[in-house]
Design a protein around this nucleic acid. Structure first.
Lengths: 189, 189
DNA sequence: GCAAATTAATGATTTATTCAAG
DNA sequence: CTTGAATAAATCATTAATTTGC
């Protein structure tokens, strides 16, 4: 109890950066998605997007920031939670049979393991990627309102390709040149 | 079998970037900690560090990079895994009683939930924090061996402030070898 | 002694659970 | 009571040990 208030206090006063977009009276607490944001996210989800890649998250986040304050982590968490809760919801109803929920993009994501830094990105790396506001399409948007499956598979393929460092953004190298000479000397014990 | 080799193959040929430092035959696959790195990490762990904050991770990572290639995510994962596996190990032996393993720093980390971006950082944010090598102590080292609670709370407060964003990275320093403080910070044990 | 084949460790990812703000 | 955020547990995948047949 005391602990809580203590710490709570610190944060509020200390670490809340609230860089901008305070126009809406944004507190600093947790993200509160606008209707539009939720709408888009939901559409993406129902289009089959389950575990967006780092870049996708970046883009989505950037796009959605048009509707209000948002960070990439919010997008990340949203998908995590939504995915989990939809599944949960489904489990309560039909205990077995259709689990396509898990399918669509899943396989692809499994592959993405190969891309080593891909998934981790979701967990850690993204950060400040530097926004680059460029208005690229988030992904094949047309798949939303209209036909589903077919576009979807295309989309899926697309997705995967993103694993190639599709830099172009910022950062690019993140870790690529990570290795300083140092390990040359030391790594071999 | 086939799958295994298949997959192995793919990875090797496909996504391995290996920009440089191939001299040592650096693969590109997963991080392979050096003995020194493991040693230090283990010491930190046994000193009670369970869930390092973003900044701690950064610092640890930077320091350890002296011994070889390493990224912050590796540090993050290492602690995750080590913590989990120690617990697991213990569970197998003594099903109850002493769980001090979980204690020491735990409280503090729990509190850190309040700091919104703190823990998330662990998952996502860190990225390039890159912080100068400044010789800050990784954490209140003195608090470990000695008195606990008091120093600890100060520490907590400190943490909060570190959330400031920092910019740029510089690998530079690594090479320059201003050899940091490495030992200053870590050698305490 | 030495590689191929197995197994054991452990790095990395995903899923489930929990906490707590609104 | 809903849901954003964070942590822990479970799982996957790759690398290092080691065993084995030669």
């Amino acid at each position: 109890m005391e602990e809580r208030s203590m710490s709570g206090f610190c944060i509020r006063s200390g670490s809340c950066v609230r860089s901008a977009s305070t126009t809406t009276g944004t507190k600093c607490g947790r993200w509160n998605p606008t209707n539009e944001q939720v709408k888009v996210l939901t559409e993406l989800f129902s289009s089959g997007l389950r575990t967006p890649s780092t870049d996708q998250i970046q883009k989505i986040s950037t796009q959605l920031s048009f509707y209000g304050k948002i960070e990439s982590k919010n997008v990340f968490y949203w998908f995590q939670n939504h995915k989990a809760r939809e599944r949960q919801k489904r489990r309560r109803k039909v205990s077995s049979s259709d689990d396509d929920d898990d399918n669509s993009i899943r396989r692809e994501n499994t592959m993405s393991r190969n891309s080593s830094s891909q998934n981790f990105a979701q967990l850690y790396q993204v950060s400040e990627h530097r926004r680059v506001i460029e208005t690229l399409e988030l992904f094949p948007l047309n798949s939303f309102g209209e036909s589903g499956s077919k576009n979807l598979s295309n989309y899926t393929n697309d997705c995967r390709d993103n694993n190639n460092n599709n830099n172009m953004f910022s950062y690019t190298m993140r870790e690529q040149m990570d290795h300083p000479p140092l390990d040359l000397c030391l790594s071999f014990m």
